[in-house]
Amino acid sequence: MSAPASAADVVALAARLGLTVATAESLTAGMIASALADVPGASTVLRGGVVAYQVAVKRDLLGVDAELLAAAGAVDPRVAAAMATGARTALSADIGVATTGVAGPSAHEGKPVGTVFTAISTASGAESFEHHFAGDREGIRMASRDAALAELFRELSRGTNPGRG
């Protein structure tokens, strides 16, 4: 992958394409939405976000299937994809981005610290990405935010209009 995309890069490209973004964040707890909102002009792009730290929020607000959550746990690529789709749908955005994972200090649901799943959702479908980050809790959360922004930028850079077919 080339140089990491910044939130400013994401906002500029999404604005140029006329696309909106919604976030669903677990371990990043709003860091992606905050990074986007820090950029002047973000109001044309950022529809909003959901901090879905607890399983019940993933299920009740984002529509993640309860059976999937029970079987796979919250740290799963399918859960990340469902979160991204849930945010995109609930907030009427063109693109949804989500994070779920284990920031530490200890393993969770049998997943080691640093296991993170991010996802991007468009009208064409959702795609999840698996990451294994090293470092402390803050470092893992920042790396997760940066990975999600890079994936969002990569989706926007495909040159198509993902939200509108």
Results as ranks from 00 to 15, higher is better:
residue 70 A to H: 06
residue 14 A to N: 06
residue 152 L to H: 04
residue 97 V to C: 09
residue 60 D to A: 09
residue 138 E to Y: 09
residue 161 N to A: 13
residue 94 D to N: 11
residue 33 A to Y: 01
residue 64 V to P: 01
residue 142 M to G: 00
residue 132 H to N: 10
residue 86 G to P: 01
residue 116 V to P: 02
residue 18 G to S: 11
residue 157 S to G: 10
residue 1 M to H: 14
residue 78 R to E: 14
residue 78 R to D: 13
residue 59 R to T: 07
residue 84 A to D: 03
residue 19 L to E: 15
residue 5 A to G: 09
residue 136 D to A: 12
residue 159 G to L: 09
residue 96 G to F: 08
residue 122 T to F: 00
residue 69 L to G: 10
residue 14 A to S: 05
residue 49 G to W: 03
residue 44 T to G: 13
residue 159 G to S: 10
residue 73 G to C: 13
residue 29 A to P: 12
residue 75 V to S: 14
residue 4 P to F: 09
residue 17 L to E: 10
residue 49 G to M: 05
residue 52 A to M: 09
residue 42 A to R: 00
residue 81 A to F: 00
residue 63 G to L: 01
residue 162 P to I: 07
residue 107 A to C: 08
residue 121 S to N: 03
residue 129 F to H: 15
residue 49 G to Q: 06
residue 101 G to D: 08
residue 16 R to H: 12
residue 125 G to F: 08
residue 109 E to V: 02
residue 56 A to R: 15
residue 159 G to W: 03
residue 85 T to Y: 00
residue 40 P to T: 12
residue 106 S to D: 15
residue 124 S to I: 04
residue 24 A to P: 03
residue 42 A to Y: 01
residue 104 G to F: 07
residue 141 R to V: 06
residue 111 K to E: 07
residue 156 L to I: 10
residue 100 T to F: 04
residue 91 L to S: 12
residue 125 G to Q: 10
residue 77 P to S: 11
residue 117 F to W: 15
residue 65 D to K: 02
residue 14 A to E: 02
residue 165 G to F: 07
residue 12 A to Q: 14
residue 46 L to H: 06
residue 23 T to M: 02
residue 32 I to L: 07
residue 83 M to A: 05
residue 137 R to M: 08
residue 58 K to R: 10
residue 27 L to D: 08
residue 86 G to I: 00
residue 56 A to C: 11
residue 69 L to I: 08
residue 123 A to R: 15
residue 63 G to C: 02
residue 57 V to H: 04
residue 150 A to Q: 12
residue 54 Q to H: 15
residue 42 A to G: 02
residue 161 N to F: 04
residue 128 S to G: 06
residue 82 A to N: 06
residue 26 S to Q: 13
residue 37 A to H: 05
residue 50 V to C: 10
residue 158 R to G: 15
residue 122 T to E: 01
residue 75 V to H: 12
residue 96 G to E: 05
residue 136 D to F: 08
residue 137 R to W: 02
residue 143 A to W: 07
residue 127 E to Y: 01
residue 5 A to Q: 07
